[in-house]
Amino acid sequence: MLSAKKIAKLPYRPCVGILLLNTENRVFVARRIDAKKDNPLAWQMPQGGIDKGEDPEAAARRELHEEIGTDNVTVLAESRDWLRYDFPPALIERVRGGRYRGQEQKWFAMRFLGADSEINLETEHPEFSDWRWEDFHRLPDLTIAFKRDTYQAVLREFAHLVP
């Protein structure tokens, strides 16, 4: 396992996150494909890395298409700041070969414009096994502990979009 000193020197991976709202202001969440079915904390919003030279909004649209099979959305808002979270030390070496200490994310709130039938998790490289529309305020309770503060920050940032 990496020492705390080595971990502190690792960079954050530049990423995007998407708070995807349907017309009823419910949020898209999906269960990670590598999670146990009975794990209540296996749900997350779409997210992923930004390719070198890629614009964050373009990365968000690409990630949506790669993860849920559609990017039929409109952007409602973009987070003012980049939000960070650290991976637990035991996870660092298993994620991206230990190159990053965590993720630094630009978040987008987007409105899904399509029908639920457009959502397809059976993509080229599936990341999720199941999905649902969830209550905005329940998001932090559904995700793994190390992402919880970030999810709470996302909720504060985009609270004005959900009555």
Rank of each mutant, 00 (worst) to 15 (best):
M1Y: 11
L2N: 07
L2W: 10
L2V: 03
S3A: 11
A4M: 12
A4R: 13
I7M: 10
A8L: 12
K9G: 13
R13K: 15
P14H: 13
L19D: 01
T23E: 13
E24Y: 07
N25E: 12
F28K: 05
F28T: 07
A30R: 05
R31C: 05
R31V: 08
D34Y: 12
D34G: 06
A35E: 14
A35G: 09
K36H: 15
K37D: 13
P40S: 11
G49W: 00
K52M: 09
E54D: 09
D55K: 10
E57S: 09
A58I: 12
A59D: 01
A59P: 08
L64G: 07
I68K: 08
I68D: 06
I68G: 04
G69K: 05
T70E: 03
N72W: 02
N72I: 03
L76W: 10
D81G: 07
W82Q: 14
R84S: 12
R84L: 11
Y85H: 13
D86I: 04
P88V: 10
P89Y: 10
P89S: 09
A90Q: 13
A90F: 06
R94M: 08
V95F: 12
R99V: 10
G102R: 05
Q103Y: 07
K106M: 06
K106S: 02
W107R: 00
M110A: 10
F112H: 00
L113W: 00
A115F: 00
A115C: 00
P126L: 07
E127K: 14
F128K: 00
F128R: 02
S129C: 14
D130I: 03
W131I: 02
W133A: 04
W133E: 01
F136I: 06
H137I: 12
L139K: 03
L139I: 08
P140N: 02
P140F: 02
T143Q: 06
A145H: 11
K147T: 10
Y151Q: 05
V154F: 04
L155G: 05
R156S: 13
F158Y: 04
F158Q: 03
V162H: 04
V162I: 14
P163K: 11
P163H: 09
